[in-house]
């Protein structure tokens, strides 16, 4: 039970990260490989906000959300928009977003050096609860609650609002969206902003969960995020949620029952097994992508 709760808590962070990833992919058909660097930057920014500005870790969350959104706008404007009319726009965006990621991590290293950073002592409430014989910290509860709240809000946005309709129109047929009067550039920018804001909150929650921020944390979650969205079904938001939770649980149970060095073997092995049974992913549409 204890391990199950730990798995849900780390899994919901993976899910939040992956949902940001898959949002841009599903709507714009672009893979934004700067997403993991937003995850890392926001962890450092979160610690800075608590340490220097004196915010509590909870009030730092909405600030990090906004910082992430701004980073998303920059990434879209610099790495994607100038290349959007190229015939190889998919590949070009992939490469330019890797370049942005490299720049962001280099800036982090310049600002903070190579060392691991932690929240100042006493940043965390010591409260914990007993849930059916397992110990759950308030921090874990908040991580899961924030992740779920953001995912619910995103689902509402995509399915019920004007902006969400615009996003789905672009996902299906960008030309039709333009004919209908949608400012495709603006909706695209919003999509990047929301995606990065979710990735940023995931980053700071991750840092809170393990009380650590490292330069390599983005690279460490990048492959997991990609694996989660492939297993969930490319572009599927609920698929990314389920995939993220599965990966979190698989990791925690692998460490508990097999050994920590087996964590990735078991977790990724499980993901491969799922893909063997369902090549299109858990909730992926069974369609062949053009080009």
């Amino acid at each position: 039970m204890q391990q199950f709760l730990n798995g849900i808590s780390i899994g919901s962070i993976y899910a939040l990260f992956a949902i940001g990833f898959t949002l841009v992919f599903g709507i714009l058909d672009r893979l934004n490989l700067a997403h993991p660097s937003v995850f890392a930057v926001s962890a450092f920014v979160g610690i800075e906000l608590v340490e220097r500005v004196g915010l509590s870790i909870w009030t730092a969350l909405p600030v990090v959300f906004l910082v992430g959104g701004l980073l998303g706008l920059v990434i879209e404007r610099v790495a994607f928009r100038p290349l959007k009319n190229r015939p190889d726009a998919h590949f070009a965006g992939l490469i330019s977003s890797i370049a942005i990621a490299g720049m962001l991590i280099a800036l982090l290293q310049w600002r903070y050096g190579p060392d691991t950073r932690r929240f100042p002592p006493g940043s965390f409430p010591g409260t914990d609860f007993e849930v059916v014989g397992a110990r759950v910290t308030l921090v874990q509860v908040v991580i899961v609650a924030v992740s779920i709240a953001l995912m619910v809000a995103l689902t509402y946005l995509v399915t019920r609002t004007r902006l969400g309709r615009g996003m789905r129109a672009i996902a299906e047929n960008p030309t039709a969206a333009r004919v209908l009067g949608v400012n495709v550039d603006r909706v695209t920018a919003w999509t990047f902003a929301i995606s990065s804001a979710l990735g940023a909150v995931a980053g700071v929650l991750f840092a809170i969960n393990v009380n650590t921020a490292q330069l390599g944390m983005g690279a460490a979650i990048e492959l997991k995020g990609l694996a989660v969205i492939i297993v969930g079904g490319m572009g599927s938001l609920p698929g990314a949620l389920i995939g993220g939770l599965l990966l979190g649980l698989a990791e925690v149970f692998a460490v508990e029952y097999v050994g920590s060095s087996w964590r990735d073997v078991i977790a990724f092995g499980l993901l491969f097994a799922i893909l063997l049974l369902r090549p299109q992913g858990l909730l992926g549409a069974r369609k062949v992508r053009e080009v």
Binding site: R165, R168, A169, E172, N173, T175, A176, V179
Partner: peptide, 8 residues
């Protein structure tokens, strides 16, 4: 070609 949004 109409360009309706088939999934909406």
């Amino acid at each position: 070609g109409r360009q309706i949004l088939a999934t909406l």
